[in-house]
Amino acid sequence: MKLQQHHISTLFDQRYIDRGKAYFEEGLVEIISFQADKVTSRCAGTRLYRVELVMKDSQLTGQCTCPAFSDFGPCKHMAATAFAATVHTRDTYRPSAVYIARRDKFEALKRQLRRMTKAELIDIIAQHLGDDEELTNSILASEEERE
């Protein structure tokens, strides 16, 4: 993907450009896939988010799994990915040690969750439902989608 500054300026509000550039400079992006018309990454924010940027007819679009994207559209994680993609082909960008540690911790957590029984998982989730409105809403939304 051949990204240029005007693509970034067109898709993102300045506040997301500034925060995205900071995330990029902190090494909080990992490029997963780099193709002629699409870049996929993971970006560390409050959590690890999956980001996809697509170039179609010289227009940059995309999506992110963060809550801000679903509420407001193009986000800082997408902007960070765009900055990483601009230098990716020069092979000069690498995720930071901070990002790698967060990613590895997340992967270890997923492995642990896969080993747990359904009953154990339900108990853990139930213990935290009252403390985490986002988790509660996510569970309720997934139930609504199944109906």
Score class of each variant (00 low, 15 high):
T89R: 04
T86N: 01
L109P: 02
V29D: 01
S138A: 09
I125V: 13
A85E: 09
F34C: 02
Q59L: 12
R111F: 02
I122T: 12
R90W: 01
M78V: 08
P74H: 10
C66L: 11
F72Y: 05
F106G: 15
L109A: 08
I32C: 01
G27K: 09
I122H: 08
T81E: 02
T40H: 05
F83Q: 07
G27R: 15
R114Q: 14
D37K: 08
A85S: 12
H77V: 04
P74M: 04
C75E: 11
A141Q: 11
C64L: 09
D104L: 09
E133S: 09
A82W: 06
I122R: 11
L129C: 10
Y49M: 12
M55G: 04
S41A: 15
T136H: 03
R90L: 15
L53D: 01
A119D: 13
S58T: 03
R42S: 04
E107I: 07
D123F: 01
M78P: 05
L113K: 10
T92Y: 00
I125D: 07
Q59K: 08
A82E: 04
G73Y: 06
C75W: 04
V54F: 04
E107N: 08
A79G: 12
L53I: 12
L60A: 06
A97E: 13
I100R: 02
T61A: 11
E25I: 14
A79K: 01
Y93L: 01
P95R: 00
S70P: 00
E30L: 03
S142D: 02
L129M: 14
E25A: 15
A141H: 11
H128F: 14
V87G: 02
Q63I: 06
R103C: 05
R90F: 05
